[in-house]
């Protein structure tokens, strides 16, 4: 179903439909996250992907255009490039461990260590929260700073101009 949704994004022209499809895509991927025991991630994805980003994209659509203009150019080069990259990545997975195997490198270093230490050191039932805020506190501080910076950037791009234009209009009104 995820693949069907993603493929329909490629062929659809109406941008409104595309934005809705991307919301659907987010919800479906949230389901997949639950299936893979990542409840926190699924929660975030459902709230962010299906909620906030759909609203923001619709807001952008209201400010821009609603449909994509067709371009007739042949698209063989990108397709070739994509297939090549995909083939290389699949070649890479041949050396990857099996899905869900408990003895992979990812499962044998810090992961079990955290699970062992959290009850003793942090005593917080939700391991994700404990790692997020305590063991990886630096990371989270950085992420918060990134969100902060992105917010500042959007404010600079969007509201600064609105004010300037208002001033421009006032200036024009005054001069004419």
């Amino acid at each position: 179903m995820l693949i069907v949704t993603a493929l329909s994004v490629v062929v659809t022209r109406s941008l409104f439909a595309i934005v809705t499809l991307s919301g659907v895509f987010s919800l479906l991927s949230a389901l997949l996250f639950v299936r893979m025991h990542a409840v926190d991630v699924a929660f975030t994805e459902a709230a962010v992907g299906a909620g906030i980003s759909t609203v923001l994209m619709l807001g952008t659509l209201a400010l821009t255009s609603r449909s994509e203009r067709s371009d007739k150019k042949p698209q063989i080069a990108p397709l070739f490039l994509v297939v090549l990259t995909g083939a290389l990545l699949i070649y890479g997975t041949l050396d990857m461990p099996d899905f869900g195997a408990p003895d992979t490198p990812a499962q044998t270093h810090v992961g079990p260590d955290y699970i062992e230490r959290i009850p003793k050191e942090i005593d917080v039932p939700n391991a994700v929260t404990a790692i997020l805020a305590s063991y990886r506190g630096y990371d989270t501080l950085g992420e918060t700073a990134v969100v902060f910076t992105a917010g500042i950037g959007v404010l600079l791009l969007m509201s600064g101009l609105a004010r300037r234009r208002k001033e421009d209009e006032e200036d024009e009104g005054g001069s004419s």
């Binding site: 893979m36 926190d40 962010v48 906030i52 990812a106 994700v128 990134v146 959007v154």
Partner: peptide
């Protein structure tokens, strides 16, 4: 399950939406 990837992705999703909105702006 290994909680470490969950933590990384959790923050990445929120950062992702913030940067997406920057792109939209």
């Amino acid at each position: 399950s290994n909680p470490l990837p969950h933590v990384l992705i959790l923050t990445a999703i929120v950062v992702g939406v913030a940067t997406t909105s920057l792109g939209l702006a």
